[in-house]
Computed example of a mutant assay.
Amino acid sequence: MSLIGGIVVFSITWFVVLFTVLPWGVRTQQEDDHVAPGTVESAPVNPAIWKKMLATTIITGILFGIFLWTVEYGIIDYRSIVNRNA
C-alpha cells in the first residue's frame, strides 16, 4: 500500500470511528435537569471531545494495523475481490 493510500484509508476509518464514538457517555441537559438559557434541551452537558478523539485515534490505529497487516502479508487479497466484482 502506498503512503497516500494509507493516509486515505486511515482518514476515512478515523471519521467513521469518530461518528461511532461520539455518542458514548453523552448526557443531555434535559437528563441533567439543567438547561442553559438559549440552548436546546438535547445539547450535551460535557461532550468530552478530546477524550473521544483520543479513543478514536487509538481504535483507528488498531483497526488500520490489522488492515495493513492483512494487505501486506496477503492474508486477504483485496485486489482480486475488487477485480472480480468489476
Rank of each mutant, 00 (worst) to 15 (best):
Met1Gln: 10
Met1Asn: 07
Ser2Gln: 05
Gly5Pro: 00
Gly6Ile: 06
Ile7Thr: 10
Ile7Lys: 02
Ile7Phe: 15
Val8Ser: 04
Val9Thr: 12
Val9Ser: 08
Ser11Asp: 01
Ser11His: 01
Ser11Arg: 02
Ile12Ala: 10
Ile12Tyr: 05
Thr13Gly: 03
Trp14Arg: 05
Trp14Leu: 12
Phe15Ala: 10
Phe15Arg: 06
Val16Phe: 14
Val17Tyr: 03
Val17Ile: 15
Val17His: 01
Leu18Gly: 01
Leu18Ser: 06
Phe19His: 13
Phe19Asn: 11
Phe19Ser: 04
Phe19Gly: 01
Phe19Leu: 12
Thr20Ile: 14
Val21Arg: 01
Val21Thr: 12
Leu22Tyr: 09
Pro23Ile: 13
Pro23Thr: 11
Pro23Ser: 09
Pro23Met: 12
Trp24Asp: 07
Gly25His: 07
Gly25Val: 09
Val26Asp: 01
Val26Cys: 00
Val26Phe: 08
Arg27Cys: 00
Arg27Asp: 04
Thr28Leu: 04
Thr28Ile: 05
Gln29Glu: 07
Glu31Trp: 05
Glu31His: 07
Glu31Lys: 06
Glu31Gln: 15
Glu31Asn: 08
Asp32Lys: 06
Asp32Tyr: 15
His34Leu: 14
Val35Ala: 02
Ala36Ile: 15
Pro37Asn: 11
Pro37Ile: 10
Val40Gln: 08
Ser42Lys: 08
Ser42Thr: 14
Ala43Thr: 13
Pro44Cys: 05
Pro44Met: 06
Val45Trp: 05
Asn46Ala: 11
Ala48Trp: 05
Ala48Val: 08
Trp50Glu: 14
Trp50Cys: 00
Lys51Asp: 11
Lys51Trp: 14
Lys51Val: 08
Lys52Val: 04
Met53Thr: 12
Met53Tyr: 06
Leu54His: 01
Leu54Asp: 01
Ala55Pro: 00
Thr56Val: 04
Thr56Gly: 02
Ile59Pro: 00
Ile59Asn: 02
Ile59Thr: 12
Thr60Asn: 02
Thr60Cys: 02
Thr60His: 02
Leu63Asn: 01
Phe64Ser: 08
Phe64Thr: 09
Ile66Trp: 03
Phe67Arg: 06
Leu68Ile: 01
Leu68Cys: 00
Leu68Ala: 12
Thr70Phe: 13
Thr70Asp: 02
Thr70Tyr: 05
Thr70Lys: 03
Val71Ser: 03
Glu72Phe: 10
Glu72Asn: 11
Glu72Val: 09
Tyr73His: 15
Ile75Lys: 11
Ile76Trp: 09
Asp77Ser: 10
Asp77Glu: 09
Asp77Met: 01
Asp77His: 13
Arg79Pro: 00
Ser80Ile: 10
Ile81Val: 15
Asn83His: 08
Asn83Thr: 07
Arg84Leu: 05
Arg84Ala: 13
Asn85Phe: 13
Ala86Phe: 09
Ala86Ser: 11
Ala86Pro: 00
